[in-house]
Amino acid sequence: MAAINKEKLTPAKRKALVKRSIPIYIMMLPGLIYLVINNYMPMPGIVLAFKKYSAKFGIYRSPWNGLKNFTYLFSTPDALVITRNTILYNVAFIIINLIFAVAVAIILSELTGKGKKFYQSVILLPHLLSAVIISYLVFAFLSADNGFINNSILKPLGKEPIGWYDNAKYWPFILVFVNLWKGIGYNCIIYLSTILGFDRSYYEAARIDGATKWKQITKITLPLLRPTIIMLSLMAVGRIFYSDFGLFYQVPRNSGALFPVTNTIDTYVYRALIEQGDITKSAAAGVYQSLVGFVLILSANLLVRKLDPDSALF
């Protein structure tokens, strides 16, 4: 089938192709209309990032401002720190979330008992909590005066209480953990449903051949999961310059002492613009983040297309 495009089409074949394609286009139409309304109609608003906005002229007739709206992202001595934090956390999240989500999905898919459904719904629950609530829960554990860790764990052990919110060194781990805790139930769903869609006959054949569980997982499940893993990772790479604002702002409670490890592009922009409320600058930040993601996703996709054409995004 894939070869059809590349062949020189005879008129008859072409006609058949058109006849087959029309119903497909019609089926796709509602979705495409939504994309136009929801995404492409506001898209020209990107020019805002290059404008000196004045309500008198509106977005599209305001005078141009060159790249001036972008400079605040780079002119700060913190530029390096916020970029580094954003990238490193995202890389860590992508890898760690992937490993755990796939592992949990595999375990869940192989479990036979009644607990399976219970586990699956329970680990999804944290995903339903807002960042503010999560910040309260984290505070309940880490508060210096009243927190569980200081009061119920360190105190009985005779250890000094730790000022968690004053010590930057713990936070890379705390943030990765919170992110994992919040996302694992959600992230594993997609892998789980993919695994459940696999042809069971592969496994039966393997079992008859006497393959161990571990062998089945590494030789059947993981290879079959590869396209999904690659696709999800590719899409995550596209968002590598974005950060979950709630996770980096609310959860560390905006504690200044933690900035060296919690300040990301999004929190920097937020702090920079609280007072100024400048819509052109926030647009500029968005364009910057998107552009980097765009370049990365294109290159990554190119690479994937070389290595494994079927898994590429487009």
Binding site: N38, P42, I46, L48, I59, A283, S290, G293, I297
Partner: peptide
């Protein structure tokens, strides 16, 4: 895929 990466931003979306 492009819509996953780029968007018009809150103000233009709102105006739309």
């Amino acid at each position: 895929v492009f819509t996953m990466l780029f968007n018009g931003g809150l103000v233009p979306t709102y105006m739309n």
